[in-house]
Design a protein around this nucleic acid. Sequence first.
DNA 1: GTCTATAACTCGATAGAC
DNA 2: GTCTATCGAGTTATAGAC
Lengths: 204, 204
Amino acid sequence: MVNKEVNDNTRERILIAAKKVFLLKGMAGARMQDIADEAGINKAMLHYYYRSKEKLFEMIFEEALAQFFPKIVDIIDSGIPLFEKIALFCSEYIDMMLKNTYLPLFVLNEVNKQPEYFKERFWKGKNSLFEKFAAEIAAEIKGRRMKNINPAHLFINMISMCIFPFIAKPLWMMSTNMDELQFRGFMEQRKTEIPKFIIESIKK
Amino acid sequence: MVNKEVNDNTRERILIAAKKVFLLKGMAGARMQDIADEAGINKAMLHYYYRSKEKLFEMIFEEALAQFFPKIVDIIDSGIPLFEKIALFCSEYIDMMLKNTYLPLFVLNEVNKQPEYFKERFWKGKNSLFEKFAAEIAAEIKGRRMKNINPAHLFINMISMCIFPFIAKPLWMMSTNMDELQFRGFMEQRKTEIPKFIIESIKK
DNA sequence: GTCTATAACTCGATAGAC
DNA sequence: GTCTATCGAGTTATAGAC
């Protein structure tokens, strides 16, 4: 009983440490020693619980993907009106990234570095991610409730404006002389600024 | 004389090979052996010409920064009217990235991985990158030629929509079932779609 | 300048004591 | 379950012949 608890505790602490190190340094840059230090244990333990660096990485990557994607799908698949949907998406997605600043760059970087690995291992039956969204926009256009715009462009415009600032964060902070707190404030503003900017452009 | 030419030739071939490998795999993921293979020579030559992996990386990184930045500054500092400036920026910048697909992710990733190193080594007196742009927008707003919008948001909206698709390229191609050629066509469209989208939103 | 061989070192992984 | 010690593969870097 006591062992079980200690076990779970260590297992969990390794995961937390690994997440921190992998998200900061990526698969290629992370060291098992860094993770062990961060977790306050020694290297052998990492292998005892997770066999190899790759297995440990997969755990973290899978968890990261689970955070990165479902939010998108859930909101887009919901039944609320398009303009509200856009506002909700931006707000929720930016909120999630404010709690996980390194998540977007980590995911996109690893997908770029090993696209085949990602495709086979993690990309199963997710082909039609934004088809529903595209159909909804087509309907709005046909009903003359918004301007004619290619849904693909609208979709990636929205995503770009939400995610990119987190990817360019250090560069952006240098360019604007923002500190951590000001950056967070800036992203808080964007929760409403982005929807406003989009809707202003597409409304009739 | 002959030696000099051979020298230059090898030096140059190493740079080209190193650029390819570093941009694809990043500093942490790149191997000196990969670069040597790509250049069709052996590892010792790399050290003969560039001393160390880090020195070689700095060369490539510096060159990458030179491509990534000046285009922005030049156009933004030019005297053309704001709306044309936005159109020109998007077109030129996307064009540059179409020729260097991996450039944005490479630069932003390395800056994120080593922000201090970047700041000290490469960020000298570039603080006011978009101040001029902000001032110009402020003038337009005051002159009632466009809607009231925070210049910082407008600026990063524009940059985000141009750069992000390249960073999310593999994921985007999977989501939309695009092939390489279709992706290029899509980005060609965006050269005009993005300015249209922006101007539609801010014009009065 | 270019190559082969190898030194020096880093890092993931394992053995074995407790 | 946890630790120390160490192995062995892989990598950067150098020595030395040509």
